[in-house]
Design a protein around this nucleic acid. Structure first.
Lengths: 252, 252
DNA sequence: GCGAAAAAATGACTTAGGTCAAGAGGCTCT
DNA sequence: AGAGCCTCTTGACCTAAGTCATTTTTTCGC
């Protein structure tokens, strides 16, 4: 999986840090070069590399920072008292992670890397200061609200959709997000296990397996292990019987 | 349904506006009298009375304000393209409404009054200014994050819980929220229809009806129309088979 | 306070998705 | 490279919750 678009020059790479790590935060905002430098300074401050299967943070850990995913992907999940796990979301490069921690002193979710990853650490206090100084406060609030609306979309799904609708929404959403990152919208790798997908969708792994096979039989997609090729996006949208998109308010 | 605690004096009533409308925002923060006056000015600016069944805002309407519920309660819901409705939440007095609108220029949900209500209008731009000036920015972020975590809780529920667990969580959550507002934790009125409860919980109205009857047969509660009396909170918690509380991170 | 209309309760029956079990690939670690 | 362990797939069967239909209760407009 690699970008289908222009490769980065060295200068572009530097810019890409603002555009990539923090793109969710400052996407459509105009900042002066000095302000941009301020942001870069924040981002550059601390990088982390988390290996596949390792945690970026655990539920209950003291909250100090948000994280911008530079490369790789994460799942977030919570563990109920009785041990039931619930996968809350999948986060790709450019997504912001850790907003669950803002409301308290600790994170409420755990974040596990689905592959080897690189993240930028954004000390929250400093970030609050910067968003206050730069014209980013509104942007920051938008970002949080987007997270709220994303969750509303998932609730819609979990509350009302059938199993095949859920899987279709999931695939279309991934497709859309990869596309927004310059990757192919129709061919990508599922970094997460069937079990994780199922859990996220409120289903069982067997059901996801069966549905993937059925979608393949119906010519909607080709799947082999973790690699999917969406053969017919429109037909896949057809599974929903109506427009999609509202379900996962993603980046503008 | 009336507060079980001390009645308000006139002065208390004035204070109560900060404590009631905005309690979610500034609950544990110490503000100077002048700052408090600033807040009150914001709150006093515009009041609305919305009658049962009327809307406070519709999905798609331009976003300008948040709303603090002074008295009464609302449901928020979204309508999918195909007409399916999804109830997203129930909001009681003191709750903040409208955060779904922050991420865009319009509200993404609709908010309908479940009874005759009074709300304070909080122009968002002005609110952002105030939270920046007063030491409330962090509080405001907390409030938004709480909304995020609340949704995570609902997702947990919709994704993994059985019908009776869902209903038990729902009732316990309401109980807790009424208690936090000074009402009885065990006797209250369901302002919303069975249909709304069912929709919110990802069930069908018939299932909710049957479960309420079964809970009554099992001695967990007494229900008559819209009035519930939770007879045995612990037994109700027992339906969950484990601790509750994490599912609906409410006010501190 | 009355009658129409909506909401709620209840019963009979159906079904989508879960459960359990067994086999097939496909990674990882030496 | 090969053993062992996951993860995935597939089949057979089961059950929780949904659907549909009917009755009862509540609500609301006049």
């Amino acid at each position: 999986m690699r970008p289908t678009e222009k490769p980065f020059t060295l200068t572009a790479q530097k810019v890409s840090c603002g555009r990539c790590c923090l793109r969710e935060l400052c996407a459509p905002v105009e900042v002066t070069p000095e302000q941009e430098e301020l942001l870069h300074a924040l981002v550059r401050q601390q990088h982390l590399n988390i290996r596949r299967g390792e945690h970026l943070y655990h539920a209950g850990m003291p909250f100090h920072s948000l994280f911008a995913i530079h490369t790789g992907s994460f799942k977030t999940y919570m563990l109920a008292d009785n041990g039931r796990e619930r996968v809350e979301g999948f986060y790709l490069s450019g997504d912001m992670l850790g907003m669950d921690g803002i409301s308290g002193d600790t994170y409420t979710l755990s974040a596990m890397a689905l592959e080897d990853t690189g993240v930028c650490v954004l000390p929250f206090q400093r970030l609050e200061e910067i968003t206050r100084e730069l014209p980013l406060q509104r942007q920051f609030h938008r970002m949080m609200s987007r997270e709220i609306n994303r969750d509303k979309g998932i609730m819609m799904m979990l509350g009302q959709m059938t199993a095949d609708e859920r899987l279709a929404v999931f695939l279309l959403n991934l497709s859309q997000r990869y596309e927004a990152r310059g990757f192919s919208a129709t061919e990508f790798t599922l970094k997460m296990s069937r079990q994780d997908i199922a859990n996220y969708l409120g289903l069982k792994a067997e059901t996801v397996s069966r549905l993937l096979s059925r979608f393949q039989d119906d010519g909607l997609l080709t799947i082999s292990g973790k690699s999917v090729r969406l053969a017919d996006l429109n037909q896949l949208r057809g599974v929903l019987g109506f427009g999609d998109g509202i379900y996962f308010d993603q980046l503008p």
